Simulated assay, not measured.
Amino acid sequence: MDKLNARRQVMSARARLSPEQRRANSVKIRETLLDQPWAQMAGLVACYWSVGTEPETHGLVFALWKHGATVILPVLREDDDLDWAVYDGPDTLAPGRFGIMEPVDTRRGVDAIRTAALVIVPALAVDRRTGVRLGRGGGSYDRALARVGPNVPTVALLHDGELIDGIPTEEHDQRVRWVISPEGLISLM
């Protein structure tokens, strides 16, 4: 299966999930992540503000922030790389490129992710054998993940059925170490 068809299949399956099912999935994912010691102890967390049918992260970002973590969210640059800025509550976000909500705080630079103790990334699917994530095709998160240290937990959030076999891999593709879906936490190390 090529990446384009894999993306289409996942997006189609996500579109068939009811809003109630997506909400229930997101609650399970958030609770599983927040139960992990490495999430509870992370002082700086890189996360993302979910859109569309992605597992919802708005409550997760807020919970991490309320529990004392500094949360940085991506700011999409013109070159499609990711800059980072601090989330300081729901009133500190504004629409960025493509209407995706971004923090209005000072930009910290593309290397800010290097200092994160936990990195949470979006994915359409993840290959269970290699840990390679299937993104939307822009390569932004592959560039960001390439900057993350080898011992930092990198976690993709998925709906059920999105941990699959056989995602085509290219040289630039970066792997994640963990997947959290409504089924629970899965180590890919």
Rank of each mutant, 00 (worst) to 15 (best):
D111C: 06
P182N: 09
Y141T: 09
R7W: 11
R147D: 01
R16K: 13
W84I: 09
Q9I: 03
T169C: 15
R22M: 09
R7N: 13
V71K: 02
A112H: 04
R129I: 12
G43K: 04
E31M: 06
P153A: 03
A156D: 04
H58D: 10
D83I: 06
V132Y: 11
I167A: 12
S187M: 06
P150N: 10
M189I: 14
P168C: 08
V75Q: 03
A117R: 05
E31L: 11
D127P: 07
V148P: 01
H67P: 00
L163M: 13
A15R: 12
G138L: 01
V51P: 03
A42N: 01
E54F: 07
A13M: 06
L17Q: 06
L134C: 13
A123L: 00
L158S: 04
E78P: 06
D83H: 07
G52M: 03
S50M: 01
T57A: 07
R30K: 15
A6Q: 14
R177H: 12
V155E: 02
I113Q: 01
A39G: 07
H172D: 13
P55Y: 04
I180P: 02
T106C: 08
V86Y: 00
R22G: 04
D142V: 00
G99C: 04
G149W: 01
R30L: 08
S26E: 03
G139P: 01
T115C: 00
L33A: 11
A63D: 15
P37T: 10
G138A: 11
A69L: 00
P150Q: 11
K28Y: 05
A112E: 10
P103T: 07
W65P: 03
R143E: 08
R107V: 12
D160S: 14
R114Y: 02
N151V: 09
V75L: 08
E31R: 15
M101N: 07
A15E: 14
A112S: 02
V104P: 03
D35H: 14
R77N: 15
G109F: 01
R177W: 03
